[in-house]
Each structure stands twice: as C-alpha cells, then as structure tokens.
Simulated scan of single mutants.
Amino acid sequence: MASRKAAVREQGTADGESGESREFVRAGTGVDGVVSAVGYRASGLRPGLHVGLPSPYLTLIFSFDGPVTTGLTPRQAVGADAARADIVVGALHRSPAYVVQPERQSGIQLAVHPLAARALFGMPAAELTGALVVPGADVLGARAESVRQQLAGQADWADRFETLAAYLRARAAAAGPAPPVRPEVAEAWAWLARHRGAGTLRGLAGHVALSPRRLTTLFRAETGVTPKQAASLMRFEHAKKALVRAVVDGTALDLARVAADCGYYDHSHLVHDFRRFTGASPTAWVAEECRNIQAGGHRNGEPWNP
C-alpha cells in the first residue's frame, strides 16, 4: 500500500461454467503491522457456508456488499445469534469460523500482526478475545464506516488500497505513540516466528530470560493466546501454505514431507491439526478450497468470505 502504482501486486480470477466468478487482488503493505491486504470480489456463488481458518494474525475486513455473517458453529452462523458486521475485527482464534457465503460479495481483508493491535486498534490483541468477531466501528470508531462507504464507492482497486492505507496511517498518527509491547513478549513472538512454531516452551522462556509460567502470563495478556497456542497456529499456517504451493505448482501432496518441513512430530499430528483448525483432513480441505486457491485467494492471507 505504498503508492498507487505499486499498490496492486497480483490479481487472480476464476470463472465457472455456471456463471460463478471469483477475483482476488493482493496489495503491497506500507502500513506498519499490516501483514497482507487482499481485495476480493465474487458473484454467482452458490449460497452456503465458508470456513474461515485460524491464523497467527488478527483479521480486519471492510465488506462492500452487506455484513459479514459468522458463527462458531454452522448452526449459529445461520441462526438469530450470528455475528453480523460490515467492518469486522477478528481476534486470534483456534477453531474454524463459519461464514455465510451469499451469492455476491466484495471487500478488503487485512491480516494484522497481533503486536500491532495497540497501534492500529488502540488496545492489545488480548482485549479482542471473548467473541468470534468484534464490530469494527466499536474498535475503530464512527469514521471507519465513512471510510468503508468510500471504499465501496471506488471502482479501482489501487484507489481503494491507497484510501485504506491513508486512513490507517492517519489513525495511528492521531492516536500518538501506543504503549509499548513488553520486549520479552515481542522477542518471544519473533523467536516463534523464526522457528515456524517449532521448539519448546522451556527453550523459548530461557531465550527471553523468564520462567515458562511468567512468559505464558505476559504473552497471553498481550495476544490472547499462550506461546504454545501461538506456535500451533504458526505451524498450521506454514503447513497450509505448503499445501497451497503444491496445488498452484500442480505437484502431488506429500503430507509426510509437509509435516516434517513444518515442525510436526509426524504425519498424524499434521492431520490432527488440520481437523482441529478446518474441520477436515488436509486432502479434503484442498479439494474444497481448490477454486479459491487457483484464483489466488490463499496466497497472501485467506479471506473469510470468498
């Protein structure tokens, strides 16, 4: 999101014989703490439920075609107590979210680093936990809705990304310096990321010179999850990307190799995590998401909606 000309980095589309159309557009990230930005637009979809996957990042969605409707279970997602919001802020979650897929949808989804929540949202990521999603206006204020409407009215993706980037930068600047994240927590997150979620809690605690219990307390107070839980999200994220690369490259899925490369004890532990985080086996998940993958929807942050 650094400049208009450089805003859109990659665009993918997929059209089905039934009139179904999917488009995903990736943007550069010139906003501190924004890990990825994905614009999405789809039409002609068969109404149903999409599974939003856990990840080591917070989610921020600006929806242009009506509210995002989600639930912790398929039953909740289609029921009266579903969560509905045109702007969605999602905390770190460790189970799939079920998202109603309407016939038509579009918007922009950002993946936000949990340690950037203080600067971008005015609170630590842990304060977002307790609900599947939080209405974005409750976190960002009334101005966010005006920005959402402006984004929806723009026709060009580069304009949209630049508008959103300018808003987020201005918001961070107006808020002033955020209270700093404790250096032990920041280094613990960086250590986990470098090791792709592998390693032991004892080794991590020793690295930041804290007891495992003290580190866990501080880490959870900042991010909403424990170091062990964050590590499992990182391992899963890398495993998911490895499967996506195989689909894009047209190579066979080697689950044993993926498990070894991504820090799993063995193939069965990889399958266990996929069932826990997606509700399906790795091969079943790939089959279900193949169209999104081929259109580019999983290359840089996975939209909850399309």
Rank of each mutant, 00 (worst) to 15 (best):
G52V: 07
A85Q: 04
V78Y: 03
V78L: 09
I87P: 00
A83L: 11
V89I: 15
D81S: 14
V68Q: 05
T70H: 01
T69W: 05
L45P: 02
L49F: 01
I87W: 00
G71H: 04
G48N: 09
H50D: 14
G52C: 08
T73D: 13
S55I: 02
D65Y: 06
L92Y: 05
R46S: 13
R84E: 12
Q76F: 04
A77M: 09
P67Q: 06
G71L: 00
T70A: 13
G66N: 07
T59W: 07
G79L: 02
G79V: 01
G66C: 04
P47H: 08
V88F: 07
G90R: 13
A77V: 11
L72M: 07
Y57N: 12
G71T: 08
P56G: 13
A91S: 12
L49R: 00
T59V: 15
P47S: 10
H50P: 03
A85R: 06
L60S: 06
L49G: 01
A80I: 12
L45F: 03
P56K: 03
L45I: 06
V88Y: 03
T59I: 12
A80H: 05
S63V: 10
P67K: 09
T59Q: 12
P47G: 08
G48T: 09
L49D: 06
T59K: 14
G66Y: 04
Q76K: 14
R84Q: 15
G90W: 08
P56M: 06
P47I: 14
Y57F: 14
P74W: 05
A77R: 09
P67S: 12
A82C: 15
F64C: 12
G71I: 01
I61F: 03
P47Y: 10
G48F: 04
A82R: 15
H50S: 10
F64A: 11
G44D: 08
D81Q: 07
D81K: 07
A85P: 03
A80P: 13
G90D: 12
Y57G: 02
V68E: 04
H93G: 10
R75Q: 15
I61T: 13
R46D: 06
D65E: 15
V78E: 06
F62Y: 02
G79W: 01
V78A: 09
L92N: 02
S63Y: 09
